[in-house]
Design a protein around this nucleic acid. Structure first.
Length: 412
RNA sequence: CGGGGCAUGGUGUAAUGGUUAACAUUCACGCUUUGGGAGCGUGCGAUUCCCGGUUCAAAUCCGGGUGCCCCGACCA
């Protein structure tokens, strides 16, 4: 894509009403735009990142047999009366012109359970794994830190349906692995810890995936020896000791919850009377699990982890483009070679962001490149061409190196 | 929901009771310039968040509201 055609622009300064690094940088670089507190638009660059994240998640969930659907965001009251969650405080409610009650979906158990119930009648139909990537709405008392906690946000929610507890437990472990894989592929594997958390109203325990960052809203207790992480509520029960080695020398770290997995067991199948026929002809309740990842929050967390004073440093896997090609100066030679490289790279299947802007100084292009943060920068200038080269520099390295233009073609 | 802070062109700031609300940047045009936000000139862009009050006079003081940020509580 040509940068001259991008309708967004970078800002020299971050708007004063944002403080968290993810919000400041993503807004300055033109990835997102704030509509109101906790509600952001994704602009072309930001959407490309979101799509990359989405695809990573999709691949990993498909790999564990997830079947993708898209459920409605608009929910009739009746589903929520069945589980007695119509009064849930974070739920946005609205009325139709005729006075019918609706809500905006903040989670989808009430929708997916009766849906799957329509089709699943026998043990032969089980297990079933259904997921979607969709907007959620939560009437938060306090939004926080840009993309880290919003009122409207994209979420991947996976629901699993099982014949027995053993099957549920096995799948739960599979999801854990898939989640680690997702966070690893998104470039925050090293900073993300599985933490034991309370299960809320559903079960004794659940698990959270917590990414360490100063702007996180949670505090986790980390055993430096075992690398075991535990959240606050559970730690209270354990008297602030590592569950494994019983050490009391725990580090308290701020973290943001990027994923959460629960065993719902029969909580929802009971409410909807969702039963299946076992081999012996008897009816049994379905057991369920649910597994969520907030996509925008994940994107925010990635920026929180990967940035420096000059801008974002995208991991390859989620970067909106692979290479930032800068036609640094206005000279016919530089422009000609840049255009050629742009075409060649595109033909070679490389995602190129081509800074072909004619009215920007070299300095401005370099600074914008750092701010936008693509992992690789390729500079074409009179200086490099004098040696038959272009300059290649990784965003996370200080210095670049010159490589000959013919070599670039080989690399492609 | 409790507490704190802030609100002035698109963005960042100045003006603390007294001319026509200033500066930088952005944007448009012209000339010059080209490896870390380059220079000069010209121009566009504001109901100073909203409503009310005090005053001869309000961006500025007072009251109410709204919005945003931060801390805490809350959080499937």
């Amino acid at each position: 894509m040509k940068q001259s055609q991008l309708f967004t622009k970078t800002l020299k300064e971050a708007p004063r009403d944002e403080k968290s690094p993810n919000a400041k940088l993503l807004i300055r670089a033109g990835f997102i735009d704030k509509l109101t507190a906790g509600v952001y638009s994704y602009l072309p660059l930001g959407l490309r990142v979101l799509k990359k994240i989405e695809n990573i998640i999709r691949e990993e969930i498909n790999r564990i047999s997830g079947q993708e659907v898209l459920l409605p965001a608009l929910h009739p009251k009746k589903n929520w009366k069945i589980t007695d969650r119509w009064q849930y405080k974070e739920m946005f409610k609205l009325k139709s012109r005729e006075g019918k009650d609706f809500s905006l979906g903040w989670t989808h158990e009430e929708i997916v359970t009766p849906l799957v119930q329509n089709f699943v009648k026998s043990y032969k139909d089980l297990p079933v794994f259904v997921y979607q990537i969709q907007d959620k709405f939560r009437d938060e008392l306090r939004v926080k830190s840009g993309l880290l906690r919003g009122v409207e946000f994209l979420m991947k929610d996976l629901y699993s349906f099982h014949r027995d507890e053993k099957d549920l437990n096995e799948y739960y472990e599979k999801v854990k692995k898939a989640y680690f894989q997702i966070f690893k592929r998104c470039g925050i594997g090293k900073q993300t810890f599985l933490t034991l958390a309370s299960g809320g109203t559903f079960s004794k325990y659940s698990h959270e995936f917590q990414t360490l960052t100063p702007y996180g809203e949670d505090r986790i207790y980390l055993c430096p020896k075992c690398k075991l992480a535990t959240n606050k509520e559970i730690m209270k029960e354990q008297n602030y000791r590592c569950q494994k080695c019983k050490s009391q020398k725990l580090e308290i770290k701020k973290a943001i919850e990027v994923g959460n997995i629960f065993k719902l067991k029969s909580k929802f199948s009971e409410a909807f009377n969702f039963k299946f026929k076992e081999r012996d002809g008897k009816e049994r309740l379905i057991l369920m699990g649910c597994y969520g990842i907030g996509l925008g929050r994940l994107m925010g967390a990635i920026v929180e982890v990967h940035h420096d004073k000059n801008g974002i440093i995208w991991p390859d896997s989620v970067s909106p483009f692979q290479i930032h090609l800068l036609s640094l100066e206005r000279s016919s030679r530089v422009e000609k070679i840049s255009r050629k490289l742009y075409k060649d790279l595109q033909k070679g299947g490389v995602e190129v962001f081509y800074d072909d802007r004619e009215d920007k100084s070299p300095a401005e292009k370099l600074i914008d490149a750092d701010l936008i943060g693509l992992p690789m920068r390729m500079v074409v200038s009179e200086r490099t061409l004098a040696r038959g080269c272009v300059e290649i520099k990784k965003r996370n390295q200080k210095r670049g190196k010159l490589i000959s233009i013919s070599k670039v073609k080989k690399l492609i």
